[in-house]
Nucleic acid binder design. Structure first.
Lengths: 209, 209
DNA sequence: CTCTAAAAAAGGGAAAAACCTATTTTTTGA
DNA sequence: TCAAAAAATAGGTTTTTCCCTTTTTTAGAG
């Protein structure tokens, strides 16, 4: 399932060619997936993209966890996202796969998923471990919890040419609240400038360009 | 040709399935393309990604213009890039195609390319026209000229958490020179903050994340 | 070679961003 | 229901960013 139809079809094509595997259906976004899920046989695995129109990867994963807890969820990512990774693990995601992989790795991922029940590439595991080590061994409150709605709204605007004052105006918030949001996110993402923040947000798929 | 092997193979698969078309070869980057070009029949069309390792889209397009001016170049883009677009046109590129298209559009693009000799989606054309209208009808010196090497070096670091002072240090430049680079790029890209600059650079593929 | 126009470099100052510290309010869960 | 943690508010300080202006350098035309 992917916003990028070409990539999605490439994956579907690859999977169809793999002996023992077949594609139940493809969908353009989470809402469409839910519809199609009624009409087809329930798949063992669902491959999800994080950034989808209508209903994104997080929401869709949460819905699947609630309604079809047995389905194994494999997430397609553009980069090795750090923060969203934790959130997705909380949503019950069983595997991560970068979009720029070699076709062979897809087969490997699916096999691991079905046999072991999970698939986490080394890089991804490394990053998770890093997160837990970063703050003196115990996971800080920051990296574990999901971003709040205001956080995300702010981040979107922080990735624009607007000043903080203009952002405050647009979000109907006091500039001080904005300053706090900023300061918290700086600590959370371990950056020290707005550019660092913006780039982090984009890299991790929190903000789409 | 694409850094993303999956997407590249999807395109190759689609083209192979199109009646009257066939794929001569695929390559991971520009240098490899040049090698393979010797070993295969010369194709009518080359599909290029801008961001490739080893030898990027601009360089490869320039090489093709020099050595095989008859080959039609179709550029794959992630977004509707503005600035690089002009540069690519100067390199003799005959078409642009976003990566998130519907498979049908690929067929359309290739047919146009072979029959008309070019393929420019409406959005892309609109953006080019905008560029020329923006500065009182005559194209300003800004949008037409390619970025200099220092510009690009600076932009890369401007998309990090470093301060201008740190950037100056890293590039062995006076902070004032950095300030001038910045100011010029602000005017050129029509932004008023470093975040605006960074986001523009990323959106337009000048800086990869 | 010299003049002129453009670009690059540099200085100074205003504005915004980033950083502290402290106090109050709100949440949370024990 | 109380205590502790987190979030919001507030003040002011330092640093960085941004912008305007002048000077120097470069490049091309005559």
């Amino acid at each position: 399932m992917d916003d990028h139809i070409l990539l999605r079809d490439a994956l579907a094509g690859l999977i169809e060619k793999m002996p023992g595997f077949s594609v139940s259906f493809t969908a353009d976004h989470g809402r469409q997936m839910i519809e199609k899920l009624q009409q087809h046989e329930i798949p063992l695995v669902v491959i999800l993209d994080i950034s989808m129109p209508e209903m994104n990867g997080y929401e869709t994963a949460a819905w699947l966890k609630e309604n079809h807890p047995d389905i194994l969820i494999l997430i397609l990512t553009m980069f090795d996202a750090e923060m969203p990774l934790i959130r997705l693990l909380q949503e019950g995601v069983k595997g991560f796969l970068r979009k720029d992989i070699h076709p062979d790795e897809l087969r490997h991922a699916l096999n691991s998923l079905l046999q072991e029940g999970y698939y986490y590439p080394v890089q991804t595991v490394g990053r998770i471990v890093n997160l837990f080590h970063q703050n003196g061994g115990s996971k800080s409150r920051y990296e574990t919890k999901a971003l709040s709605a205001p956080d995300i709204e702010f981040l979107k605007l922080a990735c624009t040419d607007l000043s903080y004052k203009e952002i405050a105006l647009q979000l109907n918030m006091s500039p001080k609240v904005i300053d706090n949001l900023r300061e918290n996110l700086f600590a959370r993402f371990n950056v020290k400038s707005r550019v660092g923040l913006a780039i982090y947000a984009v890299k991790n798929g929190i903000v789409q360009l």
